[in-house]
């Protein structure tokens, strides 16, 4: 897929999202506003982060959904009223919760990468220790004429 095709597809998504938002705003303004406000980090990542940000936005999405279930449920219970929506936003910590959940969409992969690196380092360290010890033992037992590497970390 070429860059122009990709950008045209993204543009298309943005246009469709814009139209959908317009319809949503007209029909269910409270839901749409709540969605937009709660999805601010996702939207920022999607719009400003370029290709990487777009991918990040997709990771954030399930976490945002997970955190946004409760505020939407509250809004549902309040019959989608715009006042109810504002009270949800102002009285409950919905915004920081959802935004933090969105941040975890960025943190989880970082933690996974770092954790895997650390795990790998530990494994290498242990293995190197074992190999070096074995080489030393063999060298002590056998007269290896060529100067052997000491190994070790």
């Amino acid at each position: 897929m070429t860059t122009s095709a990709l950008s045209s597809r993204e543009n298309m998504i943005k246009i469709i999202a814009g139209i959908a938002a317009g319809f949503g705003l007209a029909l269910y303004p409270a839901y749409v506003i709540l969605t937009v406000i709660l999805c601010v980090p996702v939207i920022i990542a999607f719009v400003a982060g370029g290709e990487k940000g777009g991918r990040m936005a997709w990771f954030m999405l399930p976490y945002v959904v997970a955190a946004a279930v409760h505020p939407f449920h509250q809004l549902w219970n309040g019959y989608g009223d715009i006042t109810c929506m504002f009270s949800i936003l102002t009285t409950s910590p919905a915004i920081p919760e959802v935004w933090l959940a969105a941040a975890s969409g960025w943190l989880v992969p970082e933690f996974l990468a770092t954790g895997s690196r650390i795990g790998e380092m530990v494994r290498i360290y242990r293995r190197r220790h074992v190999v070096t010890a074995r080489i030393k033992k063999l060298q002590a037992e056998w007269d290896v004429s060529k100067p052997a590497r000491n190994g070790g970390s």
């Binding site: 976490y63 955190a67 959940a101 989880v108 992969p109 895997s116 690196r117």
Partner: peptide, 28 residues
């Protein structure tokens, strides 16, 4: 390989992240 070279592949991380997120969403 003693530097930060061999880690999970990026695709693995993406998959795990998405799966975890989806799981959280379902639980939520």
């Amino acid at each position: 390989t003693s530097g930060f070279y061999v880690t999970f592949r990026e695709a693995d991380i993406e998959q795990m992240t998405t799966a975890f997120g989806a799981m959280l969403a379902v639980i939520s």
